[in-house]
């Protein structure tokens, strides 16, 4: 349907949309996050859902304690090597469609604790991340910005065709292997399917 006809119809009180548009409208306005805090950023995540910042405006105030009922995992804080297997396990337990926000410097790359022997250098190593928010910790406004970014991404997902959304494709994994505790490090140290070490700019 072309835009002109749609506009003309809406003047007469007839609302038209596509199934895809309706579907995405519903999905993007009820993203239920997993109530899952790891470290400092979790406090800002809670603050975002409280009175002043009011995440309920974005339909995302329903923090679910169980991964089975959640759509969105906010990795809020430092992921340690001891915690990484449980984070992956929680992600595996979430039903599709599911999204990940890496909140804060630690979840992105290890942040200030990058040199630590027990700190995972970014949750990207095991999970596909949709939105990264830098900051230590990011302000609640930044988390809201991440939500809006995620909503735009959900809105742009198509239900059919070769570019259809990730959860509708059978060739993409929705569960990832849980790393095992080794003698010194996690095994494997990263999941090669989701993460490849970036090429260094000046190393050639």
């Amino acid at each position: 349907m072309d835009e002109g006809l749609r506009g003309e119809l809406s003047k007469h009180g007839v609302f038209t949309t596509t199934l895809e548009g309706l579907h995405n409208w519903g999905r993007r306005n009820s993203v239920w996050p997993l109530q899952f805090g790891l470290a400092c950023c979790a406090i800002e995540m809670i603050a975002t859902s409280m009175a002043r910042y009011d995440l309920a405006r974005f339909g995302a105030e329903v923090f679910r304690p169980s991964p089975r009922q959640a759509d969105l995992m906010i990795v809020a804080g430092t992921v340690t090597k001891k915690m990484a297997p449980q984070v992956v396990r929680l992600y595996n337990q979430m039903p599709e469609p599911k999204y990940v926000i890496a909140m804060g410097a630690c979840a992105i790359s290890g942040g200030p604790f990058k040199q630590g022997y027990n700190v995972l250098k970014g949750i990207d190593r095991y999970l596909p991340v949709d939105v990264h928010i830098p900051g230590c910790p990011p302000r609640p406004e930044a988390l809201i910005h991440a939500f809006m970014t995620l909503q735009r991404r959900i809105d742009a997902q198509s239900l059919t065709g070769p570019n259809r959304a990730r959860h509708l494709r059978s060739d993409v994994d929705s569960e990832f292997p849980v790393p095992q505790f080794g003698a010194h490090d996690l095994h494997p140290p990263s999941n090669p399917k989701t993460w490849t070490p970036p090429q260094s700019v000046r190393s050639q």
Binding site: S109, G110, K114, Q115, Y117, K121, G122, H184, D185, P189, S190, P197, P198, S200, V201, R202, S203
Partner: peptide, 19 residues
């Protein structure tokens, strides 16, 4: 410490060697 090298945007010196 385990050698899980993380990318640095502009490595130099010992970081470049590790990269």
């Amino acid at each position: 410490e385990p050698d899980d090298y993380e990318y640095e945007p502009t490595p130099h010196g010992p970081v470049l060697e590790r990269a």
